[in-house]
Nucleic acid binder design. Structure first.
Lengths: 186, 186
DNA sequence: ACCTTAAACGGAGTATACTCCGTTTGTCAA
DNA sequence: TTGACAAACGGAGTATACTCCGTTTAAGGT
């Protein structure tokens, strides 16, 4: 990548982070971000084809770290499957909580824009949770575990998670307990 | 409601149905709909505050019928809980299949626009599925059943359902079987 | 029949996501 | 150092969701 492009990419991410920290994402226009980054709208779109793509870029690192950390966790821990579930899902809930607005925008970049499900991140996240489900229920086949991982992600996705937290008023730990009850059949 | 308003409302619904049948929802603009209905954009928005609201109006009848029919079913059938689950969820999947595009638009009218979760329809759907879960697992408390109903809806919502059908390539009946395995712990 | 008025209408206007394309610039080989 | 060119830039332009407000009209009372 050309050096000027690299610099602009950083300027965009920095500007977006600052603006999104100051006001809600919907109230920040792409033009605002371009202006704050000191570039033209065309350049902004050259780097991030959609607003939701930009949001994805802002959370990719954190989610990728979560995935890697917990991949290692799953292969090194000696605790039982149920405890692993609580640990991994607990951390996942924490990430969703801290990045709720951004993640909602990433996942809302649909329909028409496959964004979320097409991202490499989804595949990795799904693999991680598939492993988790497999540890929990070793008798189930790979595709069945994958399905349950898909469902786990769907349950905690964008507006669904926000609904549980804000409308239903369920806390993170309550959600974890409920999910445990649903998924961990002992 | 004034008579002219009633007439316009019908004209809008008819025009929208026709246009949505001919081309995909995203390619039909609100102006297109207004023009086809022979009214101004302002009038269209007076009736339906957002495109997603209009989409909701177009599916409300069918979903409401589904809910009522299955409420009756649950109180009159004599088959076991597991068979009830298959029946109700099977029909729910069929409705999602036949109205995938519209429902995706309804449910995508977020974030910012609470649309789906705030609709009376959601409450009724949730009540129905809560009952279904309760029949399945009578020992669980009401809030726990409600949570699992929420999750059931989330699992089959908008982009999640489309992902399973189109990317994962799972058929309706396969989804039903998987959901059965996940939710019906016998 | 006529007046009143709240409700409904319509379309010009606004905001913003995203595109197009002519211009500029970093990079690299000669 | 220079020339060539792919890559990147920028901003005017387009499309469209949604708003605002002056105008019109249905409907009920007199």
């Amino acid at each position: 990548m050309r050096k000027d492009a690299q610099i602009n990419q950083q300027k965009i991410l920095t500007a977006a982070r600052q603006l999104f920290a100051a006001r809600s994402i919907e109230t920040v226009s792409m033009k605002d971000i371009a202006t704050a980054a000191g570039i033209g709208p065309g350049t902004l779109y050259r780097h991030y084809a959609h607003k939701s793509t930009l949001c994805l870029a802002l959370v990719t690192d954190r989610v990728a770290t979560f995935i890697k950390t917990n991949q290692v966790y799953l292969t090194t821990t000696s605790v039982g499957a149920a405890a692993r579930f609580d640990h991994v899902i607990g951390e996942y809930l924490a990430i969703r909580e801290h990045n709720m607005a951004l993640l909602m925008n990433v996942e809302a970049g649909e329909p028409g824009r496959r964004q979320f499900y097409q991202s490499e991140l989804y595949q990795q996240l799904c693999d991680l949770l598939t492993q988790l489900v497999h540890d929990l229920k070793p008798t189930l086949s790979k595709p069945v575990c994958e399905f349950q991982a898909d469902m786990l992600i769907a349950m905690l996705k964008g507006t669904s998670y926000a609904f549980q937290r804000q409308w239903r008023g369920r806390s993170q730990s309550e959600l974890l307990a409920q999910l445990h009850a649903l998924m961990v059949t002992e």
